[in-house]
Design a binder for these strands. Structure first.
Length: 501
RNA sequence: GGGGCGUUAGCUCAGUCGGUAGAGCAGUUGACUUUUAAUCAAUUGGUCGAGCGUUCGAAUCGCUCACGCCCCA
């Protein structure tokens, strides 16, 4: 038995068998899957055009329309019926009468099922209860649906099934459709924002020989013809900066990164980021840009600068909080004083007291960052920039002129989660080479998230990169904020799931 | 990695003390020309996530596993 046979046999039930029989009968009668019907109207436009007209007006001004969609509800009342169809813009009620369609078609229609896709034309009218509807004089079955839809009132509630069979979730749930329409608008807004500011959109390699630009475990793959191992990119950063070296002063890329880590409500192995780079700018400029971008998104896409997220409220109208990493640690733990963060010895004592787990190899910079992750991050509800990240955890960022221990870097938090990361770029090729060497040493020491030495990138920097600032923003987490989604899986059309048994 | 909860008809869910499977929707048949989760009557439909065990007997109790959700690391 072939795999297909066994799958089908296992999967068939009475309902599907009957629908297959209905389809077989339709095949007998001619073209079962016609493709010559062209709708000219959709539910949303009709509602906008005629929703506020009354019954009399519609009777006196007959409007002919032509629509297509999927049957969601069907109410047969003897010689007349109502069906509710769904198209890409919304729902619409159609009135189907035996007298208007004839005995033969009406009898066939009574055998059609929810889920079937139909085309129809007729005139607009309003029912006695005031619902805008179409009184049909033409009705065609365009696609027979073989599988029964979920229950019409509750829809599909099982999260697992909604993620695994997103098409079904989209058929059944207006909220799901709205979420992904919002996602599309957000991406379009961001793209437009940068285009209008003279940024150029580019595409850089997703298949890389040296995975760089972030500290993360990559996915490994193999190029057969070249017989070399390759990696799916963990970030586009180093390629985008090569473009700045090349003279493209403002570039951005919106695309997927891949990180070989676990699945959770906050992590999908492939996720979407925008990274943008601007020559002759600093991280201070980017913080201003970020504030402006988010305020615009809230206003223009979300429709309000006050955003509700999972019971929290964020006001994007207020100036965003800005504080240094050390300040934030002291702010959220009053027992810690500045001197505790000056030496590795004292910082380790503090971490130990707070139960923060540290590796032997951690230097002061990593210890401070670890303290920040443990006691500060989750508290950063209001939009907040944290600045002065230690150089030890920022191998691609420019050192601060006033304190070489830290970099000209910020991360951006909303709702206790990191949304973005930006810095003045390290354009000192010699410093960059040293930092890569340190990363390689850590890699050799067993840290499989540490960076490789990218010789060609150093080469590029040696030709000279103008002073530049760059930033990455996680699109998925951003969409979560504006759609009030609890899980990253709610904002990714096809999130990764463990294979089923 | 650890803990808790869940998995029963296509979908949404019940299932008592362990006694052999239930409802609503969907489907089928019939009635019904302004319904809207249409209504009314009748009716079909089950690998109770998988496996092992306890028992005269397991959806139910125990163990293992799979997948999902939540919490913790």
């Amino acid at each position: 038995m072939s795999e297909q046979d066994s799958v089908q046999e296992h999967d068939e039930n009475q309902l599907i068998t009957l629908r297959r029989e209905k389809l077989a009968a339709i095949r007998e009668q001619g073209v079962a899957f016609p493709n010559d019907f062209k709708p000219e109207n959709n539910a949303a436009d009709l509602e906008a055009a005629y929703g506020d007209k009354d019954k009399e007006w519609l009777a006196e001004n007959p409007a002919r329309v032509r629509v297509a969609g999927r049957i969601m509800l069907k109410r047969v009342m003897g010689k007349a019926s109502f069906i509710t169809i769904s198209d890409s813009t919304g729902r619409l009620q159609l009135y189907v009468q035996l007298a208007a369609l004839g005995e033969e078609l009406y009898e066939s229609f009574k055998g059609w099922d929810s889920g079937d896709i139909i085309g129809a034309s007729g005139v607009m009218f309003k029912t006695n209860k005031g619902e805008l509807s179409v009184k049909l004089d033409e009705l065609r079955l365009l696609t027979k649906s073989l599988r029964p839809l979920p229950e019409k009132f509750h829809g599909l509630t099982d999260h697992e099934q909604r993620y695994r069979q997103r098409y079904l979730d989209l058929i059944m749930s207006d909220e799901t459709r709205a979420t992904f329409k919002m996602r599309s608008k957000i991406v379009a807004y961001i793209r437009n924002y940068f285009m209008q500011r003279d940024f150029m959109e580019v595409e850089t390699p997703m298949l890389q020989v040296i995975p760089g630009g972030a500290t993360a475990r990559p996915f490994e793959t193999h190029h057969n013809a070249l017989d070399i191992d390759m990696y799916l990119r963990i970030a586009p950063e180093l390629y985008l900066k090569r473009l700045v070296v090349g003279g493209f002063d403002r570039v951005f890329e919106i695309n997927r990164n891949f990180r070989n880590e676990g699945l959770s409500t906050r992590h999908n192995p492939e996720f979407t980021m925008i990274e943008f780079y601007q020559a002759y700018a600093t991280y201070h400029d980017l913080m201003d840009t970020t504030e402006e971008l988010f305020r615009g998104l809230a206003n223009d896409v979300y429709g309000n600068t006050t955003v509700e997220y999972q019971g929290l409220t964020f006001d994007f109208d207020k100036p965003f909080v800005r504080m240094t990493m050390k300040e934030s640690i002291m702010h959220y733990n009053k027992d810690i004083e500045a001197a505790d963060l000056e030496t590795e010895y004292r910082a380790r004592l503090v971490a130990e007291k707070l139960g923060v787990h540290l590796k032997e190899s951690f230097g002061l910079g990593k210890i401070i960052t670890e303290l920040f992750d443990e006691i500060v991050e989750e508290n950063l509800n209001d939009p907040t920039f944290i600045t002065e990240y230690p150089a030890e955890v920022s191998p691609l960022a420019r050192r601060s002129d006033s304190d070489p221990f830290v970099t000209d870097r910020f991360e951006f938090f909303i709702g206790g989660r990191e949304i973005g990361n930006g810095f003045s770029e390290l354009n000192d090729a010699e410093d960059q080479a040293e930092r890569f060497h340190k990363q390689v040493a850590e890699k050799d020491g067993g840290d499989d998230e540490a960076m490789h030495f990218d010789e060609d990138y150093i080469h590029a920097l040696e030709y000279g990169m103008p002073p530049t600032a760059g930033e990455g923003i996680g699109i998925d987490r951003l969409v979560m904020l504006f759609t009030d989604a609890a899980s990253i899986r709610d904002v990714i059309l096809f999130p990764h799931m463990k294979p089923q048994a």
